[in-house]
Design a protein around this nucleic acid. Sequence first.
DNA 1: GTGAAAGCGCTAACAC
DNA 2: GTGTTAGCGCTTTCAC
Lengths: 331, 331
Amino acid sequence: MNITIYDVAREANVSMATVSRVVNGNPNVKPATRKKVLATIERLGYRPNAVARGLASKKTTTVGVIIPDISSIFFSELARGIDDIATMYKYNIILSNSDQNKEKELRLINTMFEKQVDGLIYMGATISEEHVQQLKTSPVPVALAATIDGSDTIPSVNIDYEQAAYEATKYLIENGTEHPIYVTGVEDSVVYERKLNGYKKALEESNVTFNENYKIEVDFSYEAGLDAASKIVEMEDYPKAIFAATDEIALGIIHGLQDKGMNVPEDVEVFGFDNTRLATMVRPTLTTVVQPMYDIGAVAMRLLTKFMNKETVEEKNVVLPHQIVKRNSTK
Amino acid sequence: MNITIYDVAREANVSMATVSRVVNGNPNVKPATRKKVLATIERLGYRPNAVARGLASKKTTTVGVIIPDISSIFFSELARGIDDIATMYKYNIILSNSDQNKEKELRLINTMFEKQVDGLIYMGATISEEHVQQLKTSPVPVALAATIDGSDTIPSVNIDYEQAAYEATKYLIENGTEHPIYVTGVEDSVVYERKLNGYKKALEESNVTFNENYKIEVDFSYEAGLDAASKIVEMEDYPKAIFAATDEIALGIIHGLQDKGMNVPEDVEVFGFDNTRLATMVRPTLTTVVQPMYDIGAVAMRLLTKFMNKETVEEKNVVLPHQIVKRNSTK
DNA sequence: GTGAAAGCGCTAACAC
DNA sequence: GTGTTAGCGCTTTCAC
């Protein structure tokens, strides 16, 4: 049997209520009794039971985090931002991988609610009607991180993906390639659409007709970048600039190109997206769009704390600034 | 107010106990009543409260995971292995970053116990007396992942670091470099010691006296590898083979060397450790020691489930096999 | 400033 | 096969 608040009360000759007050820092306790209680807590090695506390107070100081894949260099950075702010506000996180699998996502959301989390941070590509339904009827606040639902009805933290992709493409165009190639993984998401729109917008702006062949759809992986590069160099008279939807794909492209004997950026320029740590861990270093993953996680968690505290927040859909960082993979 | 088991019982004209049985899949329920209960659960949208269940049953189906840094490419892979097996056994994980900070580690362990986790997976470098003390008096099972305590008294999952480092060094020696350089981050850990011992053992075996100057201590980072490379090329008549304690350092070394105009492996050979995804995301690809991070996490979690189920386990200190994978950064 | 007592929502004997 | 009834360890009124 474990030491309970009752044991402490008995040993200290006070009531459970008083022990509870001391443990919770309630000021309505005479210093002398506080001291006495603290001493017997120490003596007995009492450790509050957070589950019992959660049941009685209806607060668990725990938030759920649903993430596609924690081993991804992109999402793990987000998770770090979330946990740091969570810790700052005395919350712990229950972390679960969804693999972007719809069934699993829906099930996980439900599990989080069963576990009585005080809030939920959700990351994922496809936000179906069922997702929105489940999230909107959530018993606790929810915030999306690096994730957009079409209806813009759930609080979220993102960057302006369309504008970012537009700027990247435009940069490549101004560098002399009329119609850069766009290499991306496929997914049914608003983020995917917005990036693609930004890319097309830059083409339109310089009156270039979008060529479907120059949009190459692969996976969101390094290997996919490698393959894409092979395919590209076999195309005849292909554009000499490539915009990749993620840094990881970009790295694959750079190496794929180099493996074929080409030089980056002399022969072909490569532009990434995200500015993960990979961007500086490659030669040439990667020019890319800076998406502040850590900050997105941190701000999403901060936003969630505001909701959990019932503070009023003016802007529920936060758009963080992005930027372009020029390195050596472009001219 | 939320729907409780009591509401369901009333609406279905059965007792709470019966509802509980249905929810928990207890076979002692007549199919007809089960069906009736299930129907009203559906109708009312009843969702079991895991906190109440946890208090009553003294099981939370939650395990704590204390990790140095989830954004690390090494640890995030471990975490993925842990979560996958946890999910398989119906557990969720409470994940917390310790930053290898002793105070924080000790505090986190305590928090996990307060939250009544059913088990704990711990990762960290320095295992002090206090750590061991706290872990050994744990109210629930504990397993160390990629972590060794000097006393070997806490269950753990690792590889044979000494042997692995020995093999890597020996490989380099046999390739023609009498005394390879060893570049490592510094930490007060058994893993650090064992790797260093393996390195020294290989030197001894070929009767080479260990030269303190050829052990370069930096940080466990890419940038540190970059710096180390600069320092090395400035040494006069330096060895032409470098063994790095982690892939990330190795990548930094490779690029640092290349930035100075040297060729890998023609001018200098580089050997890594871990076989993170980085090892294939570099040119030349990295020869390295395969440490199965995902498996270590998975096996540690599996081990924990056995303890939690009070199964008897023969070997409490699991040593997983490692191997050497030869790629292009060595001759 | 402190105590008594009623829950929080569920599980787990135990009885029938 | 089903119901009754204690708790699980804490918070939170409400008195005093």
